[in-house]
Design a protein around this nucleic acid. Structure first.
Lengths: 129, 129
DNA sequence: CTACTGTATGACATGTTATCATACAGAAGA
DNA sequence: TCTTCTGTATGATAACATGTCATACAGTAG
């Protein structure tokens, strides 16, 4: 599975993995219905404990992104996002504000910050299948 | 001090406060050289323990945003940001990617996500003095 | 039956978040 | 000098997050 973890980062490994799997999904490198590696397989691949790997999938399942089926495996769902528009707006506003304030604090202008966002989007687009 | 904490949020209180003080600084509601409330005063104001309040300032001091001076108080610095361009680029790219992937996962388009960022920026602009 | 899957539990270690209390030391003004 | 403000440092405590490790249970398919 196309996941790279930074084992020296201050970001928790399972959070890094969650983001990267979401990334694979939004870029359609992982499609709805597709099967992900099993807990034990992914654990070996990422050099993590199976319990930690399970936490990755449990987090994704909690957000309705995958479904874990005993005896079968973990699959990408094709359901719509189970969150209200208000929640989405509030949550993204919080993340956007944090991103923005950090950028301004670093001395960047708004257009420079927006450009970083655009850069990341272009990278995602290139990955998109 | 113009700080509002969400005591029911999953975000740590001290992190919320750090972000809000940065926000006051980038909007120039707090200017370079200006004195912030003392640890004990802010602690009462925010209903926090002085130790927790000190953590807020210690974090800001670590990022070079304020300076703590015994007997005097806490002051906004006027120094440039002590981080390399590479670090800034990497850090903001990470935050931007996370923001972007969350938004896409929520089913928003890139322009909708960019608009949320713009909304937040307009709010900041209105606060700016 | 076997071998794969996810699930559930406990034990454990470390770090974060936060409260509480106490003591120390620098700065300023009366 | 004395008092009172300031930040600093330390130790105890608690709950939770993060992560490892091991074991057992249960569902699915060949």
């Amino acid at each position: 599975m196309k996941i790279k973890l930074d084992y020296h980062s201050s970001q928790p490994l399972y959070q890094q993995a969650v983001l990267q799997i979401k990334r694979l999904i939004v870029t359609k490198q992982l499609k709805a219905g597709e099967k992900l590696p099993s807990i034990r397989i992914l654990a070996k691949e990422l050099q993590l404990n199976p319990t930690t790997t399970n936490r990755i999938f449990a987090q994704l399942a909690k957000e309705g992104i995958v479904i874990q089926r005993p005896g079968l495996g973990v699959f990408v769902t094709d359901m719509p996002v189970p969150f209200s528009a208000e929640y989405i707006q509030k949550e993204l506003s919080r993340q956007g504000l944090s991103f923005l304030v950090e950028g301004l604090r670093f001395g960047l202008s708004y257009s420079e910050i927006a450009e970083i966002l655009d850069q990341q989007y272009q990278i995602l687009r290139q990955e998109t299948q």
